[in-house]
């Protein structure tokens, strides 16, 4: 089985946003980065698919050369190959151009199944996975919390407002992974040593210009100063009064 895990480097969830000098992007000075939380689940599910069906796992990303750090960790966990589509504009690319570039690369590499996180925790779009599927005419199931993968297709569960949906899909398919699907493994010493010998291929980006135009970025207005209405049970009547007559939400 040819398996690809599509991942993204994102700022850590602890970063504080600051608007950059151009007023259209974030000032990333001092940002620390990590693999997007849900992409860790995608790597794990790719490794599990390989354990079950054999084959090869390639970890693919679009980003700066520096994200070899995150890819090296995936290799240490057991991925066979890693590739960075090196993109100086990785931080400002819209979902369409990202999906088109990755879809073209996946077509070239060939894949029976592509795993990705349900969302990248920087742009919060949840779009690139299903768009890759649309561009490659692959099946796709999003936000998957349970997966049963067979040689030609499978069934998956996702949680929606309606409840837990069970879906069947044929391969090739794109699966976007949600929390609950698996518990990502840690890399062992043996894996870490082996990963040092694996090469991370860097390829240049086939540029697809952004169609959208960012006009500005702003931080949320500070919330107006609140107040402590009191301590303990004695404060409950004052809270009810404030919610009713001041905030008018009761």
């Amino acid at each position: 089985m040819k398996i690809i895990a599509c991942v993204k480097r994102v700022p850590t969830t602890e970063v504080q946003a600051k608007v950059g000098a151009d007023g259209k992007s974030l000032d990333t000075a001092g940002f620390e980065y990590m693999l997007s939380f849900y992409d860790d689940l995608a790597v794990e599910e790719a490794l599990k698919a390989k354990e079950k069906h054999g084959g090869e796992v390639t970890v693919l990303t679009l980003g700066p050369s520096e994200c070899s750090k995150e890819l090296r960790e995936a290799l240490a966990k057991g991925a066979d190959k890693a590739m960075i589509v090196v993109d100086p504009q990785w931080n400002t690319r819209d979902a369409r151009s990202t999906a088109k570039i990755l879809a073209a690369k996946i077509r070239e590499l060939g894949a029976d199944v592509v795993f990705t996180g349900r969302v990248a925790t920087d742009r919060d779009q949840s779009s690139v996975g299903p768009m890759i599927a649309a561009y490659l005419d692959m099946a796709c199931v999003t936000d998957v919390v349970k997966l049963d993968l067979a040689a030609t297709g499978g069934s998956a569960q996702r949680e929606s407002e309606a409840g837990v949906e069970t879906l069947t899909f044929p391969l090739p398919a794109v699966i976007t992974c949600d929390k609950g699907l698996n518990e990502p493994r840690y890399a062992g010493l043996k894996g870490i040593m082996a990963a040092k010998k694996k090469t991370i291929e860097e390829v240049s980006v086939q540029d697809v210009p952004n169609a959208s135009l960012v006009l500005g970025i702003e931080l949320p207005p500070p919330r107006k100063e609140g107040r402590i209405v009191g301590e303990g049970v004695a404060a409950v009547p004052a809270l009810i009064e404030a919610l009713k007559n001041e905030a008018k939400v009761l």
């Binding site: 819209d94 979902a95 369409r96 999906a99 919060d124 779009q125 949840s126 779009s127 690139v128 996975g129 299903p130 768009m131 890759i132 599927a133 649309a134 561009y135 796709c140 999003t142 936000d143 996702r158 949680e159 929606s160 407002e161 952004n210 169609a211 959208s212």
Partner: peptide
């Protein structure tokens, strides 16, 4: 922007080759 809505947005944007904007 529900679970089904986000899923649909990305698929439709892919089919129409347009940029999606979620949420």
């Amino acid at each position: 922007n529900t679970s089904a809505g986000k899923d649909l947005l990305a698929r439709v944007a892919g089919l129409l080759d347009c940029v999606p904007f979620a949420d």
